[in-house]
């Protein structure tokens, strides 16, 4: 981004995703600049300023909690409408994602995995609202979540086998000693590659979806108004696909996290 004034529309769009422009301070008519002024006064050694991605994350955390809370408050055995939808999603998370991969320990990990699923899902869906922003399309967000997953993997394994035992059993036993010199770094790298791939997958999927829609619409600017119907039609199709991707990526993130945590709890499998 060497010459800001000569940036192509594409590069300008990347600036938007970087949240470095002043557009990042506004969303849905809310301005965060006064709040950021106050936050800057706090004695915290790093920047904690609020921007639209942060706001969307708050919103998504709030929404996922309120909706699940609402679903859990329901009386009567037969749910309908929104409660039914939330229960279906929750049932899916509990039985298809958590219980199949974590087994008996599922109950303990349910808030974490379920939180991941609903947090990412609502992030993605809120990101699809026009004038919204998808926090998942910034790698810092996905990387933070992935780091939390990495900690979860480590904690799950260490709880099961002890702190030293976990690191000792990282590589499979029963091999000649010299192989471990090669194998151990590989195992450590594969351990780190798991959250890395999680972070990059979510980030790149969401970013790619938004870029494709943007590129389709940017064709109107590049080639004139006559391509508008075509690019709009494809834009709508991609948008529908993005809704699918929003669900799929939340599902993938949650199920891979639970697979990794499950593999850490039951290393023999």
């Amino acid at each position: 981004m060497a010459h800001p004034e000569s940036l192509s529309p594409m590069a300008q769009m990347f600036e938007e995703f970087d949240l470095t422009t002043e557009h990042a301070q506004h969303i849905f008519g809310i301005n965060f600049e006064p709040l950021n002024h106050v936050l800057k006064q706090l004695p915290i050694p790093f920047d904690i300023s609020v921007n639209k991605a942060v706001f969307i994350m708050w919103l998504s955390a709030f929404l996922s909690f309120m909706l699940i809370f609402y679903a859990g408050r329901g009386r009567g055995l037969v749910a309908s409408g929104l409660r039914n939808a939330m229960e279906a999603l929750f049932q899916f998370v509990k039985f298809d994602i958590v219980d199949t991969n974590l087994g008996h320990e599922g109950q303990k990990w349910l808030p974490f995995i379920g939180g991941l699923f609903f947090f990412i899902l609502f992030n993605n869906l809120l990101g699809l609202i026009p004038a919204g922003f998808s926090p998942g399309s910034n790698i810092n967000v996905t990387a933070s979540l992935a780091i939390l997953v990495l900690f979860a993997i480590l904690i799950a394994g260490m709880k099961k086998q002890g702190v030293i035992g976990y690191w000792l059993h990282l590589a499979p036993g029963g091999l000649p000693k010299w192989i471990y010199i090669i194998l151990y770094p590989i195992e450590v790298i594969s351990l780190l590659a798991k959250p890395f791939s999680l972070a990059v997958r979510l980030f790149a999927n969401l970013l790619a979806g938004h870029i494709v829609i943007f590129a389709l619409l940017a064709m109107i600017i590049l080639f004139g108004i006559y391509v508008a119907p075509l690019s709009l039609a494809f834009g709508v199709i991609m948008y529908a696909f993005e809704i699918f991707v929003a669900f799929i990526q939340a599902y993938i993130f949650a199920i891979l996290s639970s697979v990794y945590i499950g593999a850490s709890i039951h290393p023999e499998h």
């Binding site: 920047d47 904690i48 991605a53 994350m57 708050w58 926090p135 810092n140 967000v141 939390l148």
Partner: peptide, 9 residues
């Protein structure tokens, strides 16, 4: 971007 990481977590 430490603010994003902070608020995410």
């Amino acid at each position: 971007q430490s603010n994003l990481m902070f608020w995410t977590i």
